[in-house]
């Protein structure tokens, strides 16, 4: 596959965006995700109140794919309830695995659809899914604490 399918404007711009790249005040939950193979390392922080993701941000560094994916994910999950965010996470991961392919079904992923073609790049799949796996882990920790 061509580089123009990976380094799209959506991805390169989001990879450099600093909008969501900062610590947040009093996070209720956080989780660190690492891709040892390429050195992507993000710490995702969430503030969940009444089941709603009120605030989310991250710190860390890594490749353009991982950074853009994290930034776009945060755009998408802010203000959503936890179950909704988890549903989106499994949809995104399904898309990258090539299991969810229907464009209409994927529409709600908005800008995160830009990573669809990464499913053809085994070396970069981990970069795209890092933030979403990290989100799942952070939210599961959240549930553990509620129960």
């Amino acid at each position: 596959m061509g580089l123009d399918q990976i380094y799209t404007q959506v991805i390169t711009e989001n990879s450099r965006s600093t909008e969501h790249k900062h610590p947040i005040d009093c996070p209720t939950h956080s989780h660190e995700g690492v891709n040892p193979s390429c050195g992507d390392d993000i710490k995702l922080e969430l503030k969940v109140e009444d089941g709603i993701i009120k605030d989310a941000a991250f710190v860390g560094d890594g490749c353009a794919i991982s950074q853009a994916s994290t930034s776009i994910m945060i755009d998408l999950i802010l203000g959503r309830n936890v179950d909704d965010a988890k549903r989106l996470a499994s949809k995104f991961i399904g898309m990258i695995k090539g299991e969810v392919t229907d464009d209409e079904d994927l529409e709600e992923l908005e800008d995160a659809q830009a990573f669809k073609d990464i499913s053809h790049m085994p070396a970069r799949v981990k970069c795209a899914v890092l933030s979403w796996h990290t989100l799942e882990k952070a939210l599961n920790d959240a549930l553990d604490q509620v129960q």
Binding site: C38, C63, C127
Partner: peptide, 22 residues
């Protein structure tokens, strides 16, 4: 301003094999 992993991917498109990481 470019992460090594992205450099390696871009070079690979030209058939240039390098290593990136730690």
């Amino acid at each position: 301003d470019v992460h090594p992993h992205d450099v390696a991917t871009i070079l690979d498109a030209d058939g240039v094999c390098i290593r990136s990481g730690h």
